[in-house]
Design a protein around this nucleic acid. Sequence first.
DNA 1: AACTCGTGGAT
DNA 2: TATCCAAGAGT
Length: 375
Amino acid sequence: MPFPRPEFVPFRAADFAVSLSNWFRSSQRDLPWRREENFSDPYRVLVSEIMLQQTTVAAVTPFFKRFIARFPTVESLAKAPEEDVLAHWAGLGYYSRARNLHGAAKSVIEEHGGQFPRDFNEILALPGVGRYTAGAVASIALKQRKPIVDANVARVLSRVLAVEGDLKTAKNQSKLWEGATQIVEVEAVSPREINPAMMELGALVCTPKNPQCELCPVEKWCGARAQNRQNELPFVASKAAPTPLFDVCAFAQNADGEVLLRKRPEDQKIWWRGMWELPRTTRIEGETAAQALTRLGGELGFAIEGGEEVACLKHGVTRYAITLSCLEASVSTQIAGEMVKWCSFEAARALPMPAAMKTLLKTLEKRPARQLRLL
DNA sequence: AACTCGTGGAT
DNA sequence: TATCCAAGAGT
């Protein structure tokens, strides 16, 4: 028999926070950044929070472990070359986060004397750190009563407070931050626990679809639940459909089995800037894949033969779906310049490279080697 | 305020 | 398969 559904009680931060905190202590997941050696270190909390921006726990976990193993302290990160930092971020996405985190580490060393700042506004001033991330570092690592509102907290509070209309409006945002502030200021709970508890509730119970209200420790304070509207709140406007793009890649191998890679420009506002990839171009409308490859070869200064399609990746990006056709090429001229180089598959794995390219290379690596005919 | 930035898992 | 969406920040 199901438990009786509790009667609705108007929101009171003190009762709400204590109930939620107790639930968190018994129900939280064991995550790497929640281990004692990590959650008391503001640098390591910062690493986890930056990685977790718009990124799932499952995706972040292996990256966090590798990153902390390679850069265990803020000093070690600050003195590392950017190429090395990007290589440890390769595949995680949103690569400006890696540059900003690197910049934040340098700032701690150079502008804060190697001591991680404890002042909220100084944390907020670090590159890549906004109101949410600063609040997370301050509350979790430094036990300061600073509120946080991420997608989880926004969803939880929008239901509890039964917030109407688009959540992104300034008016509704201030409602959410006000609610988060009231909760983190409850002295009976620790800011180190109650903020993660709000997110954990959103991740495990108060989910986007079909929230598990029967399991919710704060059900009786939930305005949406009282009206049986937990599946309708929060309201979110649908995003524009992605525009499909069709790209072709040239897969060129030399006699040693090395593959030709190109570095994308550093100084332009483009995707994957500064990262390595197979030479690639976007098909012009009406152009066949073979024609696009011929054009790409001309731009690079080598002739492309072949045309066997060996891989096709569809990739969901914010506004684009990218289809990659990978063709085999033979190379007639040695490419000059720093932006292009021959690279073994093994060495390629150590380069900063977007996930789509890593997947593509992994596929190509398993193919039987083929002797190229030089023109 | 609206747009951009990556990726992978869930539904 | 199509769509949603995740511990957001910068511009």
